[in-house]
Amino acid sequence: MKITEIQSAKASEARQNDSYISVKNLSKYFERKGESLHVLDNISFQVKKGETVCIVGASGCGKSTLLRAIAGLDANHDGIVTVDGADVTNPAKERGMVFQEHRLFPWLTVEQNIGYALNGVSKEERRRLVHEHVKLVGLRGFEKVYPRQLSGGMAQRAGIARALVNNPSVLLLDEPFGALDTFTKISMQKELKNIQKQSHTTMILVTHDIDEAVFLADRIFVLSARPGKIKRIVPVTLPEPRDRNSYEFLEIRKTIYDEFFAEGQDLEVPKGKRKKPRISVG
């Protein structure tokens, strides 16, 4: 290979890494009772390899729909999603998914649930991987327990371990801590951060919790109300570990808060029926 070829290969690899996940002109409509619901409107963005992106937006703006398109769970949309250069049309184990409800199989124990994700590995390898991931999410001692016997936080950890056990290059999380109490939630956010540091997984996390987004993200995508559009991208360059009460943290939080609650923002809702969007601010 000539030097110029090597250079261009490197450049293309760098480009590839800059757009590890690429979403181009993604639009989505749901047909319901003959009516067409416009959910996502021409969304385009790119995510770097190893980056953590948080998507925030009000309830119903299409966050889950967007994440499902990236996961390949719903390929019935306009536009193109690629991961590592390949079109996403189906779910694949290289893209781990964590849902808001833990979605563990009730009939399998914690270790069986985590092991379920593994296909075509030897018995010893399976045991080793399951053990390693049980440890990673702090569930040692609960391997033989059924999901029914787990607390919400523990079940969610098991769900995360299951999504990670295939060592996916992309981890997609849909409001994973939304159902947890504040204390559990904050400790899970810290753990997720540690896991990300160890595994360098590219992460996209959907949330309606602004604090969570500022704490976890390298960049925050703010989605508008339905039809969802990327209204703003906010880079978060705070040093680690992030202090939730530092001036800079609060400043970013306010920036995002203002995206939702600035003057005249929520006036679409008729008077008398006015509801606060489901955004928790701390």
């Binding site: 996961a71 769970l73 779910p91 893209r95 409800e101 979605r103 379920y116 296909n119 295939n166």
Partner: peptide
């Protein structure tokens, strides 16, 4: 269907 979706998203072989 939510659990079926989970199984599908892991590329689970049919018999399993």
């Amino acid at each position: 269907p939510k659990l079926i979706e989970v199984s599908a998203s892991m590329e689970t072989p049919l018999l399993k």
